[in-house]
């Protein structure tokens, strides 16, 4: 009897060892991106943070998995027909790729609308009606705005193009408490950004989002996906894929960073005027509304 138990234990031990070896083969990852300092930092950080069963390689042909930074690289990477993770990719492009049947997913550029609204609610608790400017290529589809339920009413400000921005703002700012902008490179170029900020601030309506650059230019505050946020999210996605063979649904980064323009936040008498204090308040506030 004791001898039988011993055989079984040895068999299970061998099975477990063999299973571990079978489930965790080292997979290789290659990062595609336009040459830039950000790419270098990203690749370096990724290589450091990846688990032991994932390894960064220099050649795409030698890689089991591809990571593409940005829309251009993502489009190019699709030609390799390998499992592909897009990072900082436009939502429209990733959804198009999914429709084409690629084995891919994306960490979208920008952050979720729920995150940005939570930020506005925390820093500006008196706000009750917020305008969300959306163009055809914005990261948030109109349905997300229309379907939003929470303590703040969102008003969809659809604009076809940059030329329509001025009139839309002029018509709506008076009955809004604030404006939230999406990531939308085609709609919000430098001239449009200036127009939005100047028009809103002449009427003393604060602008939130969409990213760090905008906050530096004059918007009050924003959740944004920092480089380290993207690395963390990418590592998580790669780990899951390595374990399950599935990417999961494309989405925004789950834990974005926060930035506040202290000068503008002070001008608007915002409750929190520096990034650390706002981040703490957001953490205390818990889930997004």
């Amino acid at each position: 009897m004791r001898s039988q138990h011993g055989h079984i234990l040895v068999f299970l031990l061998l099975l477990a060892t063999a299973g571990g070896a079978l489930s965790a083969p080292t997979q290789t990852v290659h990062v595609l991106a336009e040459p830039s300092p950000f790419k270098d930092v990203f690749v370096l950080s990724l290589a450091q943070d990846l688990p032991a069963n994932l390894r960064v390689v220099d050649e795409p042909d030698a890689a089991d998995l591809l990571v593409a930074l940005g829309d251009v690289a993502f489009t190019r990477a699709m030609d390799h027909e390998k499992p592909l993770l897009g990072v900082h990719v436009s939502r429209a492009l990733s959804e198009k790729a999914a429709r084409l049947g690629c084995q891919c997913a994306a960490i979208w550029a920008g952050v979720s609308l729920a995150n940005q609204v939570q930020l506005v609610h925390t820093i500006m608790p008196l706000a009750r009606r917020i305008g969300v400017v959306l163009g055809p290529d914005s990261v948030w589809p109109p349905e997300v705005v229309r379907g939003f339920r929470g303590p703040i009413k969102l008003e969809l400000l659809s604009v076809k193009d940059t030329r329509a921005l001025g009139d839309t703002l002029r018509e709506n700012l008076n009955h809004l408490d604030a404006i939230v902008l999406p990531v939308d490179d085609s709609l919000l170029g430098p001239d449009a950004a200036k127009l939005v900020l100047l028009t809103s601030y002449r009427q003393r309506r604060p602008v939130f989002g969409p990213d760090l650059t905008f906050v530096n230019a004059g918007s009050v505050a924003s959740y944004y996906a920092s480089g380290s946020d993207l690395v963390s999210e990418a590592v998580q996605r790669l780990r899951v894929f390595a374990d399950t063979g599935e990417w999961g649904a494309s989405a925004f980064v789950s834990r974005p960073s926060v930035v506040v323009n202290e000068h503008v936040a002070s001008s608007f008498d915002m409750h929190y005027r520096e990034s650390g204090a706002l981040e703490d308040a957001l953490n205390n506030a818990g889930e997004a509304p």
Binding site: R204, P206, A217, V264
Partner: peptide
């Protein structure tokens, strides 16, 4: 970057 004169003022 907005010029300070263009930045908002509550009062």
């Amino acid at each position: 970057m907005m010029e300070p004169a263009q930045q908002p003022a509550m009062v």
